[in-house]
Design a binder for these strands. Structure first.
Length: 252
DNA sequence: TTATATGTTCTTGT
DNA sequence: TACAAGAACATATA
């Protein structure tokens, strides 16, 4: 689930916690938390978050002590703000009676505290954020990629934020076959514009599948489903080990 | 029971 | 060597 639009919605959601003093830190230490419990506690306890940022699928919460809490949600992570500590919570921060919790069911997420965001992004080898990259930069970075366009979109080093679900969506909306060789795509401009449009639409819908437009592929990711664009039938294939859905009738 | 799943990262192969 | 593809990772669900 958590690709760029989802993480952007988490970021906005987390704004309720800005400026509130963290009164209690509850931790369930596991592989998701990459730093010691005492380090996390020393950065958070008694301090507050001053801003919430995002780069690709990574979220950065600036702490009043000058450091940043980095969250990555893996495949099944999310934030929860409420009275209770949810099951599978990695840590939960109490603020004025409510709790902001980082929940990670399949433990493929990451949480750590860093000093230098740009350095961290560089160390991770992330490309520019998919929503901030401009058209020229996008084309330049795509142009000399080998392999399928699907692989290029999923490569976080080319640009960060687009994953399996939303790359499928861009190709579906743009009528491009996901196995097309990147270098042989003549209309990279069109693909860029569609990517921005799809991401913005998803964010506006709160990244909630029920609020995503009905004719989106997201609403019909199953073999044999009716295409919402041309009346074809949705097919499933495999690219780079991932399940890819597309409509063979209008995606060329 | 086995296969599959949105994520990254490490390993393998070209 | 560089880069693309595949496997591994943890756990829930069909």
């Amino acid at each position: 689930m958590p690709e760029l639009p989802d993480v952007e919605c988490f970021r906005r959601y987390a704004k309720v916690s800005l400026g509130r003093r963290i009164g209690e830190v509850s931790i369930n230490k596991n592989r998701v938390l990459r730093i010691s419990e005492s380090t996390l506690r020393s950065h958070l306890l008694g301090n507050k978050f001053t801003s919430a940022g995002r780069h690709g699928k990574y979220m950065f919460m600036r702490i009043s002590d000058g450091y940043e809490l980095v969250l990555h949600f893996g495949m099944t992570g999310y934030l929860s703000y409420g009275e209770e500590i949810p099951e599978h919570s990695v840590f939960s921060l109490e603020m004025a009676g409510k709790r902001l919790s980082f929940v990670c069911v399949r433990k493929l997420g990451k949480a750590e505290v860093i000093k230098d965001r740009d350095g961290y992004i560089k160390k991770k080898g992330l490309g520019p954020d998919a929503l901030s990259v401009n058209r020229g930069e996008f084309v330049r970075r795509m142009r000399d990629k080998r392999g399928s366009i699907k692989g290029a979109f999923m490569d976080q080093g080319v640009m960060a934020g687009v994953g399996n679900i939303y790359s499928d969506e861009v190709f579906y909306q743009a009528g491009v076959h996901p196995k097309r060789e990147t270098g042989k795509i003549e209309d990279l401009d069109g693909l860029y514009r569609m990517m921005i449009k799809v991401i913005k639409t998803a964010i506006k819908a709160g990244a909630d599948p029920a609020k995503i437009p009905e004719n989106y592929l997201l609403r019909r990711r199953e073999e044999g489903a009716g295409c919402g664009i041309c009346g074809g039938k949705i097919r499933k294939t495999r690219i780079n080990g991932r399940g890819v859905y597309y409509c063979p009738k209008h995606q060329k």
